[in-house]
Write a protein that binds this DNA or RNA. Structure first.
Lengths: 198, 198, 198, 198
DNA sequence: GATGAATGAGTGTTCATTCAT
DNA sequence: CATGAATGAACACTCATTCAT
């Protein structure tokens, strides 16, 4: 634990990714420039390219991190010993937390598993993201002891939850006006309605 | 009274909008340049600015068109004399058709009831889009004879449908692999599951 | 004097030039577009090109008009029966009036006589402007009964007057602050000082 | 302490400014494009933006340099131990040299004491230019031991000199034709006539 | 290993001018 | 004769990426 003279590449990647994440959350991935990230992370623009192939790889890297967090949250908030409803609401809670931390990657989660890697260029992290998505799917299937209908049910649940969370985020002011409820309280009602789906 | 040789501005606007729509569908609104649109529509870049104030106005124009189509489709596929389930599936059908034609504006539909026009600059078409969104909301409320619970129910339904349709679009290949069904057939199953929500 | 069915070209030129002049005075010749002029004059952009070869010719046309006005003003405010000082101040008055009406052409007046027409393209009006400039020079020479020293004296006077008028225009606020006098009153003092030159 | 291989930013700024200055002198600041400057300076367009915030900053930078040169020249050519006439002619000489090097900024000098910096955006260099202008004014006042009449006298002198120099520049060919003198010799006569003003 | 410096390839937008009708 | 329509040529400015040191 002595003084670290040389930092591992992973440390630099983390530092860069953290800076990028904060900027992406506030301004979106398109608006943020490589220069912005470099400045915020305390590196020169050129150094970023030592640790990441290009801007896209930073995005992919964060997408993977975000999926891992999502998986962790889902596992933390669910348990086979709980009732199905408790577990469903646990998944909702996990997704919501995820959205708050990585709003810019929610569309990624809405995609869950990034499709076809055969033709397009992709980064290893994209593949990893895909795998984490698969793991989440498998976990949910096991959690609810789903059989043949697993895929369609998981699909319906996942799509619905992502849809309502995103809609709620875009309509926060409108929700307040119409229901006098906070976004969170309102979404709680919505989740209860959606529970019937499972 | 003779056949008009000169084309009305609206014809040009349509031609430009159609070209833009096709490009947007494939590459997204950001990546497509004004030059791309002009070339595809068969005009010079400068001519585009005769018919549209700027690129944003083209985007707004298409957004409005897309919302109008959505409304038309929903009305066409529903009827107060039908059962709730028939109507629900009618709405699903309308949304699906909408997605096929204007995938790049689906996020717009996912917003449905649009934001706050008090402070930001916006084009008339943006306001019109907002109004069409409101009309769709009102129509659905009346169609299902919803009372106090109208807002939360409509919200849950709309968010869910948008969510699953988008998810299905992104996972078409994956769905095929897992279920051997076409996206449409698969979504039909999903819609039936979701019907319980209403 | 009956109803005019067809207007002479000169009428159109005047109408266009008047519109242009007002716009030029306010925004300068560069900022004003051909479209602006056409709209203000009540013509289509293309029609302008029926009456003027191009934007430059409109500028030249106005420059000539402005020089003619300058000549008229000088003649009106001077007289061989007056004292030299009265005539000098009359010229000052004429130049000042000119500046107020055509501030954007004052540099033109500062040039007085437009130099060399051998190599550059120029419009007939430019040549006319040159001739009017010459006429003014000749008039002044005769007015003050100048001999061999005519050229250098006229030159010094003309350059000085143009210089102080323009400087005063740019420093109006500053003059007020330093002297509590209006630009006009201050310039009157300046003109009296400059009279010694002649 | 060794010889520096890397060039300081100021070197690049100078190189760019020099190129810009030459182009501005010939074609004016408006006609010259950023690309033109870049090409002439041997940089790419993008590189210019590494050393200057934008085109305006290049203009401002040169304006300041020009005013500094003007001040230096005036000081160099004048001295309290000299006669008023000698000093007057020294100022003339300074202004003339300035005009030769920075004709495009002569209007700037014709403004000398610059405007109001309270509302508009401006660059530091613009403010510096203003200050140098003030310094020149103060120097002249002291040089000629001017009292209450300082402002109006300085004003008349400055305006006149600028006026005749500019007029002479525009009429060089004409002067030659009329007087068979060089512009410089002719201006020398004019300056002698104008000396009476002070 | 780190980076200062450089840049190619865009971007949306403007405008004077032309020409077929 | 008048003009709606069309456009080539610019133009200031940006940014992800490369590379010599």
């Amino acid at each position: 634990m002595g003084r670290r003279i040389k930092e591992e590449p992973i440390v630099h990647r983390e530092r860069i990714a953290t800076a990028a994440s904060e900027l992406f959350k506030e301004h979106g991935t398109t608006k943020v420039t490589v220069n912005d990230i470099a400045k915020k992370a305390g590196y020169s623009k050129a150094t970023l390219y030592t640790y990441f192939e290009n801007k896209d790889e930073i995005v992919s890297y964060l997408a993977l991190k975000s999926m891992s967090l999502l998986k962790d949250e889902i596992i933390k908030n669910t348990d086979e010993s709980k009732t199905d409803k408790e577990n469903f609401l646990g998944i909702c809670k996990g997704l919501l937390k995820y959205y708050k931390k990585y709003p810019m990657y929610f569309d990624f989660a809405q995609d869950t598993i990034n499709v076809d890697f055969s033709e397009n260029k992709f980064y290893n992290t994209d593949l990893d993201t895909y795998i984490v998505g698969q793991e989440i799917s498998a976990y949910i299937k096991k959690l609810f002891k789903l059989g043949d209908e697993a895929f369609v049910t998981t699909f319906a649940m996942w799509g619905s939850l992502c849809g309502v969370i995103k809609l709620a985020a875009n309509k926060e002011a409108f929700i307040k006006k119409e229901t006098s409820k906070s976004k969170e309280a309102f979404l709680s009602d919505v989740f209860n309605i959606l529970y019937k789906v499972v």
